[in-house]
Write a protein that binds this DNA or RNA. Sequence first.
DNA 1: ATGCCTCAGCTCCTGAGA
Length: 254
Amino acid sequence: MKLATWNINSLSVRLPQVLDWLAANPVDVLALQELKMTDDKFPADAFQAAGYSSQWFGQKTYNGVALLTRTPATEVVKNIPGFDDDMARVITGTVEGVRVIGAYFPNGQAPGTDKFEYKMEWLKGLRHWVKAELERHPQLVLMGDYNITFDDLDVWDPEGMREQIHCTEDERYHLRALIALGLHDSYRLFDQPAKSYSWWDYRDFGFRRNRGMRIDHILISNALKDKATACTIDKTPRSNERPSDHTPVVLTLN
DNA sequence: ATGCCTCAGCTCCTGAGA
């Protein structure tokens, strides 16, 4: 089983690239973030023609998430039960016995802002819900755009980014708290190239200079850890015309 | 640099992203 996550920064713009990528990478599950479209605009027919069933949860202009799956997802839940939110950030479903949560974590803008406070509350709400989901579904994958780095290895300029957004101790505390529920950063279960990132700024030739951050993650539960055989970042789509600023992360389970 | 790109939309500028 292969699962992947990709923040595509507007599905309207990136649909051809997603279809091309799926044709070259026929994963079983693809979680998308930042659809930036209302639900009536979602191209379910195009994905169906490519062999994928879709579940989606969008809104106008911002956010929006989807799960594309080879076999239809069941027990689908949108957003975090018990956490009141007017943004479309989470979609969950069960696929071939695995509980899959696709999430677009809040950006947070900057420490000290209202958006940062919202990010902290959202992270708390997510953790409480994931804890409950883990009890019901031991085989669980939590993947998406986390907008948080684990540590300096995930940052091109750790000193310059110290206590900046995506790199603060407050954010990393919540990431570690998710791990403490019994989850693992699947990417670090394997040897990886130095300076591996999943996002690069559009500005200032960020990708060409490899000035990026690893903020897209696939966390897996204890029950799945021994089944994981590889986790990779696919930088190929970043060389497309009009690329997303994020690239896919891919997990292989046996 | 409160910039640099890119995207959506109450679209020719602004807000937001990261």
